[in-house]
């Protein structure tokens, strides 16, 4: 198993990409902490599902945008697990990928940008800020930030979302540059449109088909695709890989 006995925190993991990643990590032997904001039922159901499949998991509620919340979650993790090996920063402020209702450059306000920056960058900052002391203590850690392939190819210009996800790439590289020698690797994954998830259910079929037509593999990304790459980056297979961003989008973006 690739993640035997590792302690992994996955933010926003009661559903969608986060949930698929949690399941995969648990199947690979990790002890999974399912962080969620609101959906207690879904988080508990996922814990139950993982346990039934022979894995280990707990659910912890915390708002990643609130440093105090994050601090107390980390304190619990430290007490309960005596360390933290892997973090997947997957949580985002609620966003509906609906090309029909997206805000145009003229109509969008700074508050929209601020919301997304808070969700993506501030949330990730808070988690990393609190996780790094635990990781550097053991001279081993893996941080995986979920960005988006829209940063490289804004096929649909969700301005606020794309800007925040681009900032996250900068944050990933900068942090990687500093903490690499402390044994902590920081990488990003840039998923293409991942379907189905709660955020992408509003993306109409016509748009999905348009993306599929442009995608070499001829299909959209599904949550377990992201979980696979996350597992790679979290495992020792990715040793000495840091500051990178891997697109998981069927080859839509090639770099």
């Amino acid at each position: 198993m690739l993640l035997q006995n590792k302690v992994a925190l996955i933010t926003g993991s009661s559903r969608g990409i986060g949930a698929a990643t949690a399941e995969k990590f648990a199947a690979e032997g990790a002890f999974v902490i399912i962080n969620y904001l609101i959906n207690t039922v879904a988080a508990n159901d996922l814990v139950e599902k993982i346990r039934c499949a022979g894995g280990q998991a707990v659910a912890i509620q915390a708002d990643v945008c609130d440093l105090e919340n994050v601090h107390s979650m980390m304190a619990t993790i430290k007490d309960e697990f005596n360390g933290l090996d892997i973090v997947v920063n997957n949580a985002l402020k609620h966003y509906s990928f609906n090309p029909k209702t997206r805000k145009t450059a003229e109509l969008i306000g700074w508050s929209n940008y601020q919301d997304q920056l808070d969700g993506s960058v501030k949330g990730t900052f808070n988690i990393c800020h609190e996780a790094l002391p635990l990781m550097t203590l053991q001279n081993w850690g893996r941080i995986i930030n979920i960005s988006s392939n829209l940063v490289k190819f804004p096929l649909i210009p969700y301005h606020d979302y794309v800007t925040a996800k681009a900032a996250l790439i900068g944050y990933t590289r900068s942090l990687a540059a500093e903490v690499g020698h402390l044994g902590v690797q920081v990488n990003a994954i840039a998923p293409g449109l991942t379907y189905p998830t709660d955020s992408s259910t509003d993306t109409q079929n016509d748009v999905r088909e348009k993306i599929i037509r442009m995608t070499p593999t001829g299909r959209l990304t599904i949550p377990t695709d992201i979980a696979g790459t996350a597992t790679f980056l979290a495992s020792n297979l990715a040793n000495n890989v840091t500051g990178q961003c891997i697109c998981v989008d069927g080859g839509l973006v090639m770099q």
């Binding site: 379907y195 593999t217 001829g218 299909r219």
Partner: peptide
């Protein structure tokens, strides 16, 4: 065949 495999994923 390959497209039917993709369709199954979709």
């Amino acid at each position: 065949a390959a497209e039917l495999a993709n369709y199954q994923t979709k």
